[in-house]
Simulated assay, not measured.
Amino acid sequence: MSGLVSLVAGVALGLSLAAPPGPMNALIAQESVHRGWRAGFRAGLGAMTADGCFFVLAYAGVVTFIRHAPTLQTAMKAVGGLLLCYFAYGAAKSAHEGVADTEAGAGFRKTFLAALTNPIQVVWWLTAGIALLDPGTVSAFGYTIAVTNGVLTVLGFFCGILVWITGFPALLRVAGDRVDAFERVVGYGSAAVLCIFGAWFLVDAVPS
């Protein structure tokens, strides 16, 4: 029973990172509605791969180093902001022209690069994510769960992300097949979200 609790806690933790609205889901949505479920799933894998990198970096102690390196954090915010603004332009252009990037790996690369420089993701790993290394309790969606098996918690964490990047693009495709102009609405909406977050990161990178 304790093993199941640890697994479920990990799934909840993964969903708490993957599900909230933000730039990664905007990119996944854009790929899903323009190029289909597989493209959306590949975009999700890009973000998930970045989380795998963050987990390894956390294990190696690099995440803790980032916490005490404000200059590096500022540089990441600036790069992340510029990337998101660039992706916002591409999303708006695709929505306007009704044509998406035809390269199969484009979505994966976009989310992977954006996630690695995403301050929100970095902050998550500096706080809730660091608990994966030696979990005693897991906090997700406002609840705290006691866990006893760290391996199962980590496994559940990545399973939770996998559930989201599988189901979210599928729901978007179903909606797109039933609603006229859904593709264009999502395209412009994704561009707006990316632009807002990109501008926020850039402003946050400016020294006060």
Results as ranks from 00 to 15, higher is better:
T127A: 02
T153I: 09
Y89F: 15
Y89C: 07
L82C: 10
G98V: 12
T153L: 08
K77R: 15
A114R: 06
V154A: 14
E97I: 09
G167K: 10
L84T: 01
L113D: 02
L133N: 11
V99H: 07
R109W: 01
M76D: 06
V147K: 00
V123F: 15
A146G: 08
T127D: 04
A115C: 13
L133S: 11
F87R: 01
G167A: 15
A128H: 09
A131L: 09
D134S: 06
G160P: 00
V147D: 14
V154H: 10
L113C: 02
Q121A: 15
A128D: 01
C159D: 02
K110W: 00
V123T: 14
A75V: 15
A104Q: 12
V163H: 09
A115R: 01
A170D: 05
G98L: 12
T127S: 02
Q121G: 09
G129F: 11
F112P: 12
L172W: 11
A91C: 06
G80K: 10
V138D: 03
G160V: 08
Q121C: 09
G107L: 00
G129L: 12
V147E: 14
A146P: 10
P135Y: 02
G107H: 01
G156I: 13
I120Y: 07
C85Q: 03
N149Y: 10
M76A: 03
G81D: 00
G136R: 10
V147T: 08
G142K: 04
A91G: 04
W124S: 01
G81T: 11
T144H: 06
D101P: 12
P169M: 13
A170L: 15
I165R: 01
L152G: 00
S139I: 06
W125L: 06
V151Y: 13
V147W: 07
C159S: 05
T137S: 02
N149L: 06
I120N: 13
N149W: 08
L132C: 11
W124L: 03
A114Y: 06
A106P: 09
V163L: 15
Y143F: 14
V123M: 14
T148E: 03
G80W: 13
V123Q: 12
A170C: 10
T137N: 01
N118S: 05
T148Q: 06
L155R: 08
T111G: 01
T144G: 08
Y143E: 08
A88L: 02
V138S: 05
Y143Q: 13
A104M: 12
G136M: 06
I130W: 10
I130D: 13
V154W: 11
L82R: 09
C159W: 03
G81E: 01
A88P: 10
A95G: 00
V154P: 02
P169W: 12
A100H: 04
G105K: 09
T117D: 06
D134M: 04
L132Y: 12
L132I: 11
E103Y: 08
C159R: 02
A106Q: 12
L171Y: 06
Y143D: 05
L82G: 06
A95K: 05
